[in-house]
Amino acid sequence: MELKKGSNRFYIIDGNNEIGEVTFTEDQPSVLSINHTYVDPKYRGQHIAQKLIQAVVDLAISEQKQVSPICSYAKVSFERNQEYQRIQYRS
Rank of each mutant, 00 (worst) to 15 (best):
M1H: 13
M1V: 13
E2S: 13
L3C: 03
L3N: 06
K4H: 15
K4N: 12
K4I: 11
K5D: 06
G6C: 07
S7Y: 15
S7D: 15
S7A: 13
S7I: 15
R9S: 11
F10W: 05
I12D: 00
I12V: 14
I12H: 00
I13F: 10
G15L: 08
G15T: 12
G15C: 09
N16G: 15
N16P: 11
N17H: 14
I19Q: 04
I19T: 08
G20H: 07
G20I: 08
G20R: 02
G20K: 05
E21Q: 11
E21A: 08
T23E: 07
T23K: 10
F24W: 01
E26S: 12
D27N: 14
Q28Y: 14
S30P: 05
S30T: 11
V31I: 13
V31Q: 02
V31L: 02
V31S: 08
L32C: 04
L32G: 06
L32Q: 03
L32Y: 09
S33M: 07
S33P: 06
S33G: 02
S33A: 13
I34A: 08
I34C: 09
I34W: 07
N35C: 09
H36K: 10
H36R: 06
H36P: 03
T37I: 11
T37F: 05
Y38L: 11
V39H: 04
V39F: 03
D40S: 12
P41K: 13
Y43M: 11
G45D: 10
G45K: 09
H47G: 07
I48F: 03
I48W: 04
I48K: 07
A49F: 02
A49D: 04
A49M: 06
Q50N: 13
K51E: 09
K51N: 12
L52R: 04
I53K: 08
I53D: 06
I53S: 05
Q54D: 12
Q54A: 12
Q54W: 04
A55Y: 01
A55F: 07
V56E: 04
V56Y: 00
V57F: 00
V57K: 07
D58N: 13
L59V: 07
L59R: 10
A60K: 01
I61G: 02
S62E: 14
S62L: 01
E63K: 14
Q64A: 15
K65D: 07
K65I: 02
Q66T: 04
V67A: 05
V67E: 03
S68C: 08
S68D: 08
S68T: 00
I70S: 01
C71E: 03
C71H: 01
C71D: 06
Y73R: 02
Y73K: 05
A74P: 00
A74H: 02
K75E: 07
K75L: 08
V76M: 10
V76S: 11
V76Q: 14
V76I: 14
F78L: 00
E79H: 12
N81V: 05
N81T: 14
Q82G: 05
E83T: 13
E83A: 12
E83L: 10
Q85T: 05
Q85L: 01
Q85S: 02
Q85M: 02
R86K: 13
R86I: 03
R86E: 10
R86S: 12
R86F: 10
I87T: 00
I87N: 05
Q88R: 14
Q88Y: 05
Q88A: 11
Y89N: 01
Y89W: 10
S91A: 12
